[in-house]
């Protein structure tokens, strides 16, 4: 722990960088949230560490790239995981990349999400900050899609579920996160759906119907008060 330095305070956790067993490592510390009742905070933290590690293992089994887990420490509320050195968030990538490249990438993202849902993994917090693009040649270059691998992170709110409803909510959460953050989202999200549909042939029909219904629920909800 001594050799680790604090790099970021996200919403969920503090992230520390360093080396563990000779490997570049990120420690994700779900520190105590003082605003929360202790009882609630303890149970949520435990639940989320479990959810995150479970989903990562499950992703591995269906061939989705995620950071590898090195150590889980419930006492210190920490997970030690692989530090993906040569990667950027989709959020940063979108702002610096041409639309053509983005729409191609969006189709691949859709494919990955389709595969994740086929494996009944519900991410629970899909945003452009939680999708990484990693250069497979260990370089800090992100201009050629062929060199990039899509990596999913932050599975703290994930769970396993086979229902179309939960998968629909997952897509809806992503759409809203994209639309509220990025000007090009209106054009990109349909491409993600296109990739999703192309891969997840068995499920997409029911899921898209659910997704439409969830969307309408938001739009049509009465807002009295």
């Amino acid at each position: 722990m001594d050799s680790f330095t604090l790099t970021k305070q996200g919403a969920e956790a503090r992230l520390y960088q360093g080396t563990y067993l000779g490997r570049p490592t990120i420690i994700k510390e779900r520190f105590i949230k003082k605003y929360r009742h202790k009882h609630l905070d303890d149970s949520l933290t435990k639940e989320r560490i479990k959810a995150e590690t479970k989903a990562i293992v499950r992703c591995k089994s269906v061939g989705i790239r995620t950071p590898a887990i090195y150590l889980v420490d419930f006492e210190r509320r920490m997970v030690f995981m692989e530090h993906l050195l040569h990667s950027i968030t989709l959020k940063d990538f979108i702002e610096t990349t041409s639309f053509e490249k983005l729409s191609k990438l969006a189709i691949s993202i859709g494919t990955i999400l389709g595969r994740m849902h086929e494996g009944n993994i519900i991410h629970g917090d899909l945003t452009s900050s939680n999708i990484l693009l990693m250069n497979v040649h260990n370089k800090d270059k992100f201009d050629d899609l062929k060199d990039l691998k899509i990596v999913l992170i932050d599975f703290g709110l994930s769970h396993v579920d086979c229902s179309a409803e939960d998968k629909g909510v997952d897509l809806y959460v992503l759409e809203r996160a994209l639309v509220s953050t990025h000007a090009v989202a209106d054009q990109i999200f349909p491409k993600i759906i296109e990739g999703y549909r192309g891969y997840y042939k068995k499920g997409f029909k029911e899921i898209l119907a659910k997704y439409e219904a969830i969307r309408a629920r938001g739009r049509k909800r009465t807002m009295v008060g």
Binding site: H39, L126, T127, V173
Partner: peptide
């Protein structure tokens, strides 16, 4: 006394 209740967060929803 704190009673554990259902806690439901989906992303930012």
């Amino acid at each position: 006394k704190y009673i554990p209740l259902p806690y439901c967060v989906k992303g930012m929803d």
